[in-house]
Design a protein around this nucleic acid. Structure first.
Lengths: 221, 221
DNA sequence: GTTACCAAAATTGGCGCCAATTTAGGATAC
DNA sequence: GTATCCTAAATTGGCGCCAATTTTGGTAAC
């Protein structure tokens, strides 16, 4: 396990101290800047994000609660090693939840909401070409959030958003190939098509495939 | 909103400083000692649980993350008011998840695991007669945890345990009547019966009924 | 008598220091 | 030459103080 290297720009942040440190660290883990196994030294983080010691500690504690980092008493915090079994289990949960509300999604889909989905799906496609990996990741999240919102269960939307970031330490590793990302974009549109047609079963099929696909090639399962 | 009254024994704890403060506050919320709306003053908690200021703050932050208390900047933390809609939504999620794995539960149920369930169901029945409200609550959790564990998805078990304590601020309010608690105990045994018979559909029916029942009379939905 | 304003008490929350533990490196003994 | 022990540097984490904000109670004016 190597520890985080941040000889780079220290005072370049300076200006958005307001945004929460937890999210910044979270994004850096998600972005692959802080690979699994990395030891998160408090002094480094303090300097890196231009914040105080208590801020760092609060952030680390929150991330530990979310099980994104592990806390070893008197030795510090380190980014969780990716566990293949856990990843599969989380996918299973997502499949259960997201297919379960397919019926409500179709039922509640108005022409406006379908348009909204199209816009978000298109933005994802644009980010494939023009955006960074993180922007792509967030465009994907936005699309799926909007989709789930149609289900009408607000708690479920938040819950899925939460468990998503439970295993996907590096979105980079999810969409390994360009072909896979393009495919994802196409699937988004297919899902919207299914909603327009009112074909619930088709939506379920697509949803399950879409979720499972991301993890297909990773780990030995 | 009244604030927490704790003129009672202050130094009576002294000896189990080790156990986490977060759990203690959580239990007191669950136990109904800290009703919804109560303002959680840091000084009071500090004295009450015999711990330091940073300990209290860490605990409050964690509970806020779990959405059991709400944080109002510069005004403090208070126990979440029970939201009827949220409670229903969480029940819906539980129904989705727990019925979804009914098949696996039946498939994985060995004679030993069924015996284990019987023991836990019996302990619940005993607690109805002899135990405190909190013990009853925990016996119930233990039964359901064991049941879900048979599904084989460890993440799902933890997730359900998590969302359970998301709304049920006061277990007292859940099982309002004695009749309802007795009924719950009987349902546990019926569920085990269904597993023994290998009747998946029956288990699903019972599970949904069992979950929905707890919230039936509360709030105007 | 009521309302508005001001002042004092209380509470939150930011911040930094110091002790305890761990880790790494060097020196010595075998 | 290698292994073990001891010392020093570094890192974690406990703890408490003080500034900023809010609330409450009292007073004065209308």
């Amino acid at each position: 396990m190597n520890d985080v290297d941040l000889k780079s720009d220290e005072a370049a942040i300076e200006g958005e101290t307001s945004r929460d440190v937890t999210d910044q660290i979270l994004q850096d883990i998600l972005g692959g800047l802080l690979p699994p196994g990395t030891w998160l030294k408090q002094i480094d983080l303090e300097r890196r994000y231009g914040c105080t010691r208590p801020d760092v500690r609060r952030a680390l504690d929150r991330l530990a609660q979310k099980r994104l980092v592990e806390h070893v008493p008197n030795r510090g915090y380190h980014v969780y090693e990716q566990d293949g079994r856990r990843a599969v289990e989380v996918s299973d949960i997502r499949v259960i939840l997201e297919t379960a509300i397919a019926g409500q999604i179709v039922a509640n889909a108005s022409p406006e909401s379908i348009l909204k989905l199209r816009v978000l799906a298109k933005r994802f496609d644009e980010m494939v070409l023009l955006g960074t990996m993180l922007e792509l990741y967030e465009a994907n999240l936005a699309f799926h959030r909007e989709l789930l919102t149609l289900g009408g269960n607000k708690e479920l939307v938040d819950l899925v958003a939460e468990i998503r970031q439970r295993t996907s330490s590096a979105p980079v590793s999810q969409w390994r190939t360009r072909a896979r990302v393009d495919q994802s974009g196409r699937e988004h549109h297919l899902m919207i098509d299914a909603i327009e047609k009112g074909d619930v079963e088709e939506l379920k099929r697509l949803t399950e495939f879409h979720i499972r696909q991301s993890w297909g090639s990773s780990s030995s399962n």
